[in-house]
Amino acid sequence: MVDQSLLTDDVRAHIGRTAPRGITRVTPQALLRSSDTYFGKPWEPVPGNGEPVPGIVIAALETESAGLDLPTVMPNSLLISNEWQFERRLRMGEDLEVQSRLADISERFGGRFGQSLYFRTEVEFTEPGSGAVVARTVQTMMQYDAANESRGDDE
């Protein structure tokens, strides 16, 4: 049983790190790819330039963000949660700046997975120029050691 914290100063130093800022555009192609993925069909009618688009498009835009290299502290990883947040509706044709950030790392002892580390990353979409936040995606990954996993209900 491990009882020493893995959240060392070296690991904590990653908190707040960002990937290079990129730029993305809300396009009919991005809407088509996301609609086909989630709804199984193209989005119709396709919004015109400046018209609001459904939030699912953010999943296609997210790929324009350079990824973050998370420190590998434990051998296994698992997606715990993910989220889309919108301050306003995205609009067809608009350009957005996009940047990934490692927002937080926390540690948990006990439970089904034993000692584990939680990495919360955010991808922020902002208006070029003003820097106003338009939308954000949030993802929490857990690192754990499967050798310490106990079987049973994972609720």
């Binding site: 459904p54 919108f86 994972d154």
Partner: peptide, 19 residues
């Protein structure tokens, strides 16, 4: 979305994965 239709829009959606 299929429930809401044109009556509004989704501001936030979060999924906690259990299984």
């Amino acid at each position: 979305h299929e429930w809401l239709g044109d009556a509004g829009w989704v501001r936030q959606v979060r999924a906690a994965h259990r299984r």
